[in-house]
Each structure stands twice: as C-alpha cells, then as structure tokens.
Design a protein around this nucleic acid. Sequence first.
DNA 1: GAATAGAATTGACTTAAGTCAAAACGGAGA
DNA 2: TCTCCGTTTTGACTTAAGTCAATTCTATTC
Lengths: 213, 213
Amino acid sequence: MVNWQEVLKAYGSKRTLLKDEVLFHLDEEADAFYLLLSGDISLYKLNHEGQETSIRKVMPGEIFGEVMVFTESNYPVAAIAGKDSQLIEYSRQEILSAIKNNSEISMFFIKVLSQRCLMLTDKIYQFSLQDVLSRLAGFFFKYIEENGLVAKAEAGEPFEMIVPKKEIATSIGTIAETLSRNFRKLHKMGVLKVFGKTVIVQNFAKLQELAGV
Amino acid sequence: MVNWQEVLKAYGSKRTLLKDEVLFHLDEEADAFYLLLSGDISLYKLNHEGQETSIRKVMPGEIFGEVMVFTESNYPVAAIAGKDSQLIEYSRQEILSAIKNNSEISMFFIKVLSQRCLMLTDKIYQFSLQDVLSRLAGFFFKYIEENGLVAKAEAGEPFEMIVPKKEIATSIGTIAETLSRNFRKLHKMGVLKVFGKTVIVQNFAKLQELAGV
DNA sequence: GAATAGAATTGACTTAAGTCAAAACGGAGA
DNA sequence: TCTCCGTTTTGACTTAAGTCAATTCTATTC
C-alpha cells in the first residue's frame, strides 16, 4: 500500500474525534478528505428501506473522501467514529494548491487513483462472473496477503480474523446466512476451517485456485 | 464527458489501424494509452475456458489504457480494431513529462480518474444489490441520458439502439438468454418495448424508478 | 431470391443464493 | 455463574438466474 504519511506530511491539520462523533453527514459537500491515524471510522449509507447501514469501516493508515473532493461532489456516505480517533484533515483548497505547485503530489494522486480504478475494475469482474464461493476465497486470499499471513496459511497454522462475519458478507456482496453456508462448503472441500474468530488454512493452493488468482 | 481533444491536443501522435489489426496484446507492457478518433476497437479478455471474449467496445472520443500506464502494469486485455480506425497514441514518457510540467494536465487526469472511480463504485453497488431487471433498467436509463434521448423517451417516441444484445448482456453482468427474458418482463410491465434495434419507452418514470436513480 | 451463418429467442431444467423463522452460540455485565 | 442480547448458524422454502438444446429471426453473400 501507499505511504500517505510520507508524501502528505507537510500538509493537513490534525483532528480528534470522540467515539460516536460525526465527521461528516450523508450528502454533505465534500470540502475535505481524511487520513485516519488511529481508531476507526464507519461509513454509512441509507439502504432501500431508508435505514443506515455500515458499508465500510476505515482502518488506520487509510484515506477516504478524496474522490469526492476531486470530483467536487457530495459525500455519498456519512462518517462516524467507532472509537476515539485521530485523523488528519486535508481541505480542498490546500490539496488543490499542493497539486498545482508540486508535481510529485500530482503524480502521487494520479497513481493512487489509478490503482484504485484497477482494484475496482477487478471487483466488478469478480461480482459479475464469480459465485459467492469464489468471492469468499478471494476475500480470504486478499486478507491473508494484506496481513502478512501467507507463511502461516501455507503452513496450516491458525490465525485470528477480527472482522465480523456480517461485514465480510457485505464486502463480498452477500448476506450472513449464505456466508455461513459457504464457510461449511470450504470446510467440506478441505480448503479451510473457521471456528469463531480462528481460521486454519488446509489447502492454500486450492484457496488460490478458487479465488481465480 | 470530458473533452480529451481540447486538453491533450498538443500531445501524442496519430496512428491508423486497419480492420482486424492488433493494437496491443493481452499482458503486454502498457507503455502507451490511446484516444480513439474514428472506427472502433474491441477489447478482449480470456474467459475461464481460455477463449477470447469481447469485454468492451471502445467508441470514438473514448480513451483507454491510461490506468495501466499510470500503474505501470500490463494491459489486462488485447485490443483489436473492429474496423479501420484512427487514434492518437500517448507514450508513457510523453505523458509523464506533461504531467510533471503542466499542472493543468495533472489536474485533468486527477479529475478523470476520480470520476472513473465514482462510476466504478456505482457499478459495484449495482452489481452487489440489484437484480438483472434493475441493472437493465439502469443500462437503458444511462444510455438514454448519454445519447440525448431523454425527450424522445419521455414522449414515447421510438429510437434506435446499435449495441448488440450480447454486449448489453455482458455489460450488465448477465447472459443473452436472461437479457431476452428481462426485455419481455419490461414489456409486460409496460415500461418499454424492444423490437430488433428499435426501442419505445412507455413509462420513463417507472424505468427511472426501477433503475433506482 | 435462396442459402447460410450469426444473433436472438424460447422452453425445460438445474442450481445458487436469498427469505423467513427458529435455534445455538458467545461475550459483557449483574 | 447466570442472564441477556447480539451474532452466527441451521433448516425449510422460494425465486432468480444460469445451462443446454432447439428454434426462429435477420442480415449478408452468392
């Protein structure tokens, strides 16, 4: 991943949020984006019944809102602190002038946004062609890679997953029940076992194959 | 849409492709991106059975390949001319130095990429939450908007759609048969009629509602 | 105009995944 | 330890969408 701190350290201003404090509302004008330093921020959208549902939890080191700043649109989500959090706020003004005066920063954003496009395209590909089982395998594979668990996975050693199942479900575009059934399926296939928050990969190659990587 | 010509006219070099000529191969290093002036270019990917399938047809005025240039990755598709085509080629070298020296160009790409992110996010949302019928309604709605057909649609006047059904199907993540059945469904619901390449919208408001706009 | 090939449609069938309701599990606090 | 509440799992059922095969439509070429 990209090292935001390094590139943007000369910019922005620190902010602190208490648990449950609202950073911005749904549909508010996006005049700043944020880098989360500590804590967590949940992003909420209204579902078709009009109730707020969490669509993503931002974790430390992640940035959010920059696309809305650049497209001059409104935030399509509300952002609320899940715990006490520290973040850096970059105002539109500030970041636009930084881009104007510093081609390093421009290039940085161009790369980041391109990477995001790539990632999103990939996700669309997954959604449109693959079934839940493959998507789930893809989720595990990505999780393992991104958290430096490849060695453990290959050795069949257990590791913990803190993400609530409900959240895994939404992130791969399904519901808790179907997710649960697909855990069993993976178990039966001898790919991996899940008990509670503990995961044991039994066949990493097979997992990879299922994920279509 | 963005006016590429305006911003990039000082850069790039013209190229001509004959029908069936290959612009670049699958997995080739992306050292240039392209703006299509005339003709059309089909982008192919290998499906799980290893056969080439068209995933998108680039139309005049569109740009393609820029994400791969910026992320320094390989083309995830092959590009082959569907007819004789004219395009402008922007080499990586050239575009990177343009970005370095011209903050207008940087800002331009940042905006374009951000908009693309937004669009892709939206598509993911559609894929994950909506059924084929809604996605199809969304497709029509977008098509009508983008081709200045809103007036006709609202008046119930017929208009032509050149896109082959097979292509509509892939673009909304389904197959020809299911698409066909959903055309009928829309007809039965009194939303719109399709015969051959002709479309008549009977209830634009309903179409919009189905699309979830 | 007939012949053909590709595109689109239809029907019969299978399967994946969602819904609803109930049960089991698990952790935080009394 | 017991209770309670939210999460997860399970079961029975429904529905949407894919597969396969056959048929019809359409456009192009001889």
